Amino acid sequence: MRIVIADDHSVVRSGFSMIINYQEDMEVVATAGDGLEAYRMVQKYEPDVILLDISMPPGESGLIATGKISQDFPDTKIIILTMYDDDEYLFHSLKNGAKGYVLKSAPDEELLDAIRSVYAGDTYVHPKMTDVLVRQFITQDDMMEDNTNPFKLLSKRELEILPLVAKGYGNKEIAEKLFISVKTVEAHKSRFMDKIGLSSRPEILEYAIKKKLIEF
């Protein structure tokens, strides 16, 4: 199995790489420090599985990268690897294409089991989170049908630009980060503000935090 690891901490990347490369049936072919780099590594290496951290400040988050990678590279299975035991993170991850959700505090064997499970076509969720999914199914929580879901409303480019605006980057800085023109940034910014009904950066920041597009 060819695997990519995306985490903003080099020590974490090195540690998981050692664990995975020790397995006879697994190989880490690349690592990345944020969502944008993770996307490029998937594009370049076409791995079977990618481990994505949710929070990778100041770069693109794992949640945004999940939506883009699952859409453009459906053969690459995504496992969210995170410290957050959080219902909303779990739902957002699975809704946007992740096939696994593993806590960083889990034993090494659980991570390896998750990789083998999603590679085989199954979905793997940390045992501690399965009760959440059962309750969600039974109650049919409105969150699963939330028509304000940014991953449904916004384009891939808008999902890239919105968190950067929320973090306070100017149009020129965003253009340089994404290798696009300032006019393109302005156009996408205007569109996502219209779609969501936002009129100021504080509102964009509030929305981005509420929808888990950025974290403190």
Rank of each mutant, 00 (worst) to 15 (best):
I3Q: 01
R13P: 08
K177L: 15
L90Q: 00
S117F: 09
P150D: 07
D131W: 08
A120H: 08
E206P: 06
K152W: 11
S200T: 13
E173M: 03
E173T: 10
I174C: 10
K167W: 01
K183L: 11
S14K: 10
Q136D: 08
R2A: 06
S70D: 00
Q23K: 06
K195T: 14
M193C: 07
M1W: 00
E160D: 14
D146E: 07
M143H: 07
F73L: 05
Q140D: 09
E110L: 14
E37Q: 07
T76P: 10
G35D: 02
P163Q: 15
L133E: 01
L52C: 05
L36W: 04
T123C: 12
E173W: 01
I80H: 00
V134K: 13
L205R: 15
I204H: 13
A65Q: 04
G67R: 09
N21V: 10
K44M: 11
K195F: 07
S10F: 02
P74N: 04
Y22L: 11
I79Y: 01
D25A: 12
I19N: 08
I5W: 05
R191E: 00
V11K: 04
Q140N: 08
E160K: 15
R13T: 10
F137V: 09
K210H: 04
G62F: 00
K212A: 07
L94Y: 00
E206K: 15
Y207S: 09
L36Y: 02
D53F: 03
T66C: 12
H188A: 15
T66K: 06
V42M: 01
K183R: 14
E186F: 13
Y101Q: 00
S70H: 08
E206G: 12
K156D: 15
V118M: 04
E110M: 15
K95A: 05
L90E: 01
V12P: 04
L164D: 09
D25H: 12
V4L: 06
G33N: 06
V28P: 03
P202R: 12
M18N: 10
T82H: 02
G197D: 03
A65H: 01
G170S: 08
I3A: 06
K183A: 12
M26R: 10
N21R: 09
K195E: 10
D7N: 06
T130P: 02
H188D: 14
D141I: 04
S200Q: 10
